[in-house]
Simulated assay, not measured.
Amino acid sequence: MTWLSRQLIRFLLALVVLALFGGAVIVMSFFVVPEQNREVVVQLIGGINSLAGMVIGFYFGRADNPNEVKVTNDPAHPVPVDQGE
């Protein structure tokens, strides 16, 4: 399966999460949830909402390369840390 790259897998998973979120919004808008199941449904919707937020943050939240590390001090002279006795 050489056509299924890591980027494509991430994109497809992101589409699935956003489709779940959209479906959950539609279901909550047009159907009445029984009172005994309301808390479970709200928690499931909250979890899907968190996943959708992570997808949006992954694709649109990064202004620069998160893997780039900038060293501002010389490794031979580390920053002193107070041990807090």
Rank of each mutant, 00 (worst) to 15 (best):
L15W: 02
L20A: 04
R10T: 03
Q83A: 10
P34G: 09
E39F: 05
G84N: 09
P34Q: 11
F31I: 07
N49Y: 03
V32M: 10
V25P: 00
G46I: 00
A19I: 04
A52Q: 01
L15C: 04
S50C: 08
S50W: 10
V42F: 06
E68Q: 14
D82A: 12
D82I: 10
S5H: 09
V69M: 14
V40M: 09
G47C: 02
M54A: 05
Q7W: 09
Y59N: 03
G46D: 10
V16L: 07
P34E: 11
I9A: 10
A63S: 11
V42E: 13
V79I: 12
V41D: 03
L8M: 09
N67K: 11
K70I: 15
P66W: 06
G46R: 09
A76K: 15
G61F: 02
P75C: 05
F11G: 00
P75H: 05
Q7M: 10
K70S: 10
V42S: 11
V33D: 00
I26F: 13
L51H: 00
M54D: 03
L51S: 05
R6P: 09
G23S: 07
T72N: 14
K70P: 00
E68F: 12
A76W: 08
R10H: 05
Q43I: 00
N65W: 06
V16A: 08
E35F: 13
F31R: 11
V27C: 02
V81H: 06
G57E: 05
F21N: 04
L12Q: 11
Y59L: 03
S29P: 01
G53T: 03
L18C: 02
I48G: 01
Q36N: 12
V69I: 15
R6M: 15
G22L: 06
T2M: 11
H77Q: 10
F58V: 04
V17R: 00
V42I: 13
A52W: 01
A19Q: 03
K70L: 15
V33N: 04
E85P: 14
A14Q: 01
K70W: 09
Q7K: 13
Q43L: 04
S29Y: 10
I9Y: 10
L8F: 08
E68W: 08
F30A: 08
N67R: 12
H77S: 08
A76C: 01
P80T: 03
A14G: 07
A63Y: 08
S29A: 15
G53M: 04
V79R: 12
I26M: 12
N65E: 14
N67L: 15
S29N: 13
D82S: 13
L8A: 09
E68I: 09
V33G: 02
A24K: 02
R38H: 07
E85K: 04
V27S: 07
P80A: 05
G47T: 03
D82K: 13
V27W: 07
V41T: 09
K70T: 15
D64A: 15
T72E: 15
R6I: 15
L18V: 02
V32C: 00
Q7C: 09
M28K: 14
A14V: 01
G61D: 01
F21G: 00
V25F: 05
V55R: 04
N73Y: 12
V55S: 06
S5F: 04
N73I: 11
N67T: 14
F21C: 03
L12T: 08
L20C: 05
V41H: 05
V25T: 06
H77D: 11
R62W: 09
R10A: 07
